[in-house]
């Protein structure tokens, strides 16, 4: 994974709460077996409306999404993160993220920056009155800058560390294969196995 330190890009104000993953990427696009190429699927239903923000200049080139509370609720589909990334987003800012979405984002190098709703409101106002404003998100300092505005955001230490270092989770865990093996030997014998019953 590419390390993430700071990112600067056009901010997109998305004045909606409860943006669920079915809106981020409708189920019909989940049938692909590839890991890339989901940019056309992002907000597919909303983008069919010509007034949707990503259909207008300069927002269509945005890379920092500023959304309402409870972003990424619903389905666990990691495709939601892939679609945001494939489209070009590197950061999503919201006052509250759904847990699974937040986890998925962290694994894929999409920064889910959580800040106060009042700060989201200020960012919205700025981005709406001055479209095309560039937003800088500094993961080292945990701050968001845009014009004269500087607001803090929060992210858990582990995700921040992995993003800054660009670490792959599986590689980290596999260093502990022996510990896992030792744990496995202590598991109770009544724990089931999935092999067909006859082969139990």
């Amino acid at each position: 994974m590419e390390p993430f330190t700071t990112h600067t890009g056009i901010g997109v104000p998305l004045r909606r709460s409860n943006v669920d993953t079915d809106q981020i990427i409708p189920a019909v696009y989940l049938k692909r077996v590839s890991r890339t190429g989901f940019e056309d699927a992002l907000f597919a239903a909303w983008r069919s409306d010509e007034n949707f923000i990503l259909n207008s200049e300069p927002f269509r080139h945005g890379s920092v999404l500023v959304a309402g509370p409870d972003f990424g609720t619903g389905s666990s589909r990691e495709h939601a993160v892939w679609a945001l990334k494939d489209y070009g987003f590197r950061v999503v800012i919201s006052s509250r993220f759904a847990d699974i979405f937040r986890g998925n984002a962290g694994k894929q190098g999409l920064l889910a920056a959580q800040c106060e709703q009042s700060d989201v409101e200020m960012l919205w106002k700025l981005l709406e009155t001055e479209p095309g404003t560039r937003v800088t998100v500094d993961l080292e300092q945990r701050t968001i800058h845009a014009k004269d505005l500087t607001v803090p955001f929060s992210i858990d230490d582990y995700t921040r560390w992995r993003l800054l270092e660009g670490f792959d989770d599986i590689g980290l865990t596999l260093r502990e294969a022996e510990t896992i093996g030792a744990f496995e030997r202590t598991r109770p014998s009544f724990k089931p196995r999935t092999l067909p019953a006859a082969e139990k």
């Binding site: 666990s76 589909r77 990691e78 495709h79 993160v81 699974i100 986890g103 998925n104 694994k107 894929q108 858990d156 582990y158 989770d169 599986i170 980290l172 865990t173 596999l174 294969a177 896992i180 496995e184």
Partner: peptide, 20 residues
């Protein structure tokens, strides 16, 4: 609990998950 695809890969490879 539900997990994303990266975590599916993680569990397939390690039968564990790092979790808070």
């Amino acid at each position: 609990f539900g997990i994303g695809t990266s975590e599916v890969e993680h569990v397939l490879a390690t039968q564990t998950l790092p979790l808070k």
